[in-house]
Amino acid sequence: MSTLNEKVAHTSALLQKIADSYQPAALASSLAAEDMVLTDLILRNKLNISIFTLQTGRLHAETLAVADRIREHYGYEITMMHPDPAAVEQYVNNHGLNAFYDSVELRKSCCHIRKVEPLNRALEGKQAWITGQRRTQAATRTELAEQEDDTARGMQKFNPLADWTEQDVWDYLRQHEVPYNALHDRGYPSIGCEPCTRAIQPGEDVRAGRWWWENPESKECGLHLVDGKLVRIKQAG
């Protein structure tokens, strides 16, 4: 079992490799705890990796406040990627503002408009993108690889925290006094859009508060799918 210091060293080396060998590269940040670990490692080590977040228009105020804290703490401005206003308007006019509660299909359609399409725009021209995913976060992530071939986008995808535990994440944040989303202290281990996220109860899966009205097997927004299927991207190497 690797110690936290060993994991930090390994993750830092991987991020340095990405910065050196896969340019341009970007961190897709949800502004949650895991992504703040990566944000700290990138900015503290002055790595040539840009950071963006998906401003879906339905985020908690506490989530948006994290971007302000990053600016204050690191002097870095997170890039905000917004959905296409016309697509949002069409969805709302056709289905209603909160139609995502009505079916998995309508929820995935909302996620596509507010998250997937802006993500694709943010990744245009990139050679690699980085996520804060961990294997123990969800049933859909147990086989998560540290590096994957994102053939759909023609680039490499890295999950540097794949083998980190939740305890590792929080030990790192506290040791380095990294700013984090205040919702984590209110029972929100996984944070998405406000109407699609709730606090969890003791003993629940860490992603139980995401789309809680759906089955666990469907709880992905589409950012980490290939051709709409819940499969892992082929491991690189």
Rank of each mutant, 00 (worst) to 15 (best):
M1L: 07
S2A: 02
S2Y: 05
S2I: 06
N5F: 04
N5K: 13
E6S: 08
E6P: 05
E6Q: 13
V8Q: 01
H10M: 08
T11A: 11
A13E: 12
L14D: 00
S21Q: 11
S21W: 04
S21K: 15
S21M: 03
Y22F: 07
S30I: 06
E34A: 12
E34Y: 00
D35C: 12
D35Q: 09
V37R: 02
L38D: 01
L38K: 15
L41R: 14
L41H: 02
I42E: 03
I42S: 04
L43P: 15
N48R: 15
I49M: 07
I49Y: 00
I49K: 09
I51C: 00
F52Y: 09
T53A: 06
Q55K: 01
T56H: 10
G57H: 02
G57F: 08
R58W: 06
A61F: 01
T63R: 03
L64Q: 14
A65I: 03
V66N: 00
V66W: 06
V66D: 09
I70W: 03
Y74C: 10
Y76L: 02
M80H: 06
M81C: 00
H82F: 04
A87M: 06
V88P: 01
E89N: 14
E89C: 05
E89M: 08
Q90A: 13
V92L: 12
N93Y: 07
N94H: 11
H95F: 14
L97H: 10
F100P: 09
F100I: 14
Y101F: 15
D102C: 08
D102F: 00
V104W: 00
L106Q: 15
L106P: 10
R107K: 12
C110V: 10
C111M: 10
H112N: 15
R114W: 08
N120M: 11
N120I: 06
R121F: 03
L123T: 13
W129N: 08
I130V: 15
I130G: 12
R134W: 00
R134I: 10
Q137T: 03
T142H: 02
T142Q: 13
L144Y: 00
L144F: 01
L144T: 02
A145V: 09
D150N: 15
T151S: 11
A152K: 14
G154C: 06
K157E: 03
L161M: 08
D163Y: 06
T165L: 00
E166R: 12
V169L: 10
D171A: 09
D171Y: 09
Y172H: 05
Y172G: 02
L173F: 12
Q175R: 15
P179F: 06
N181G: 05
A182Q: 12
L183H: 05
R186E: 15
S190Y: 01
S190F: 07
I191A: 03
G192S: 08
C193E: 05
C193D: 05
C193R: 00
P195I: 08
P195V: 02
P195R: 13
C196K: 04
T197N: 11
I200Q: 13
Q201H: 11
Q201E: 15
P202V: 10
P202R: 04
P202C: 10
G203K: 07
E204V: 08
E204Y: 10
V206K: 02
V206I: 15
V206Y: 01
R207S: 00
W211T: 14
W213Y: 11
W213F: 09
E217F: 05
S218T: 15
E220W: 08
E220M: 12
E220Y: 10
G222A: 03
L225Y: 01
V226I: 15
R232G: 07
Q235E: 14
G237T: 14
